[in-house]
Design a protein around this nucleic acid. Structure first.
Lengths: 243, 243
DNA sequence: CGAAGACTTGATGCCGATCAACAGGGGTGG
DNA sequence: CCACCCCTGTTGATCGGCATCAAGTCTTCG
């Protein structure tokens, strides 16, 4: 399929021909990234933003004391470096977790798309809000939940994101993260992440073999994670007419 | 001044007459809130969003175990319940910290504004990004910094937000939060917040009298907070033409 | 085959939570 | 107008969760 952005947006609304063409146009160019490659580094000046076409990435910041906080995991159809819309320098580092392909988008082209397609502008705002809610959920997790809950929540989040684009029938999935990375995302040490995974395993909530995870007791895992379901009720009736 | 949103956006770009009128139109209605009043509760169905006109508010979630995580503090010109653009139910509770006035905005009017004024739509995206960056900074703080750093960072953040709209010359400010609220924002207990404030005081970084704070050693406080300056370099040259 | 990275497990220590007690103050009702 | 009470702030004592340090295994890749 041509446009990953169109696929993402198309799950929420029916796109017009010209809207689809506009989104396609954003992803004309393509750039390959090898596993571990850095797409952009904090404070890099950047004149473009990116749409992820294939693979998974992550973004993070490094604090003065050298510790790392992973901010988000990125999947096909996600936009990267949107904060470049306002800040001159990148606010986070973005790195490929797997082989990836991204589409660079000039800011001027982005602006033109907003002007020509108001409904797409509204959808971008809406997608931003979904991401903001995901961020606040994680914020609440970091501030107020136990180590076990945070690890469980991360497993669920990644599984759900992977499912969006793959067969939802798969009983298991490959996480694709080291325990150190899980720790940097959840605010824990790699050692403690290991213990929490073992505990989840001992309690019969998950199974592991290599990097592959299986949820044995999905209900129990959700409970352990303090998981809040957000699916219930998307409402886009207010959107303007498509063009 | 009529429109708080116009004031906020106007700090970043020069608005046209018709853009200013459009933003004014969003804030026609006004609703008063008393200190402690709840504007909306998590899971409330809502058909509108709000612009804060006067006062300060906060938004939070309550976790299954009863603990509270404060997600953001809201000031005049901020938009509330933008996540209502996509979720049918509110994702956070919003409460007034002081006497407040808010302007309810119908989603349909919001949509019309986006269509008529593409540059305003782009600015809303940009403002969203500023907020997203603030959120990720706080995420990194919660995940990776000490209790003292988090409290110091909160003091700086609130001071800066208050300064945007008041005399930047004031040496001191009224925080307007209880220590319990500081704790719920930083992921700490009220007791420990108290100790951290005392420590900052003993180290000569801040002074307190009643609810009024003074920064005695701003450099030292920033260092203690792991503060990252984001001001350096706003770039909005890519924006489309105003109408 | 060697080396580096990822995973695992145990021992110990510290930061921040929890429990507890008391002081001050402001609002409310009698 | 006063008495009471609840909320907020303050400080001490103790506890526990997660970090830190350390050692060893397994895997992967050059």
């Amino acid at each position: 399929m041509a446009s990953c952005l169109a696929a993402r947006v198309g799950e929420l609304i029916d796109l017009s021909q010209s809207e689809m063409a506009a989104l396609d146009a954003l992803e004309q160019r393509e750039r390959q990234l090898r596993r571990g490659a850095v797409l952009l580094r904090e404070n890099d000046r950047l004149g473009e933003l990116f749409v992820i076409k294939r693979g998974t990435m992550m973004s993070y910041v490094i604090l003065p004391d050298g510790s790392r906080q992973i901010l988000r995991f990125l999947f096909p159809g996600d936009m990267v470096a949107m904060s470049g819309l306002i800040y001159r320098g990148a606010t986070e580092t973005v790195m490929a977790l797997t082989e990836c392909a991204v589409a660079p988008v000039e800011r001027s082209l982005f602006a033109a798309t907003i002007v020509d397609h108001p409904r797409l502008a509204a959808m971008l705002l809406a997608l931003d809000q979904m991401e903001r809610v995901a961020l606040t959920d994680r914020l609440a997790g970091l501030g107020r939940t136990s180590a076990k809950a945070r690890v469980a929540a991360l497993l669920i989040e990644i599984r759900d994101r992977l499912r969006e684009r793959r067969a939802p029938t798969e009983r298991s999935f490959v996480l694709g993260l080291t325990q150190e990375e899980i720790g940097d995302a959840t605010g824990l040490t790699a050692v403690h992440v290991n213990r929490m995974l073992r505990q989840l395993e001992d309690e019969g909530l998950i199974a592991r073999e290599g990097g592959r995870f299986t949820f044995l007791d999905e209900q129990g895992l959700m409970r352990a994670a303090n998981h809040v379901e957000r699916g219930g009720g998307i409402d886009l009736a207010w959107l303007p007419q498509g063009r």
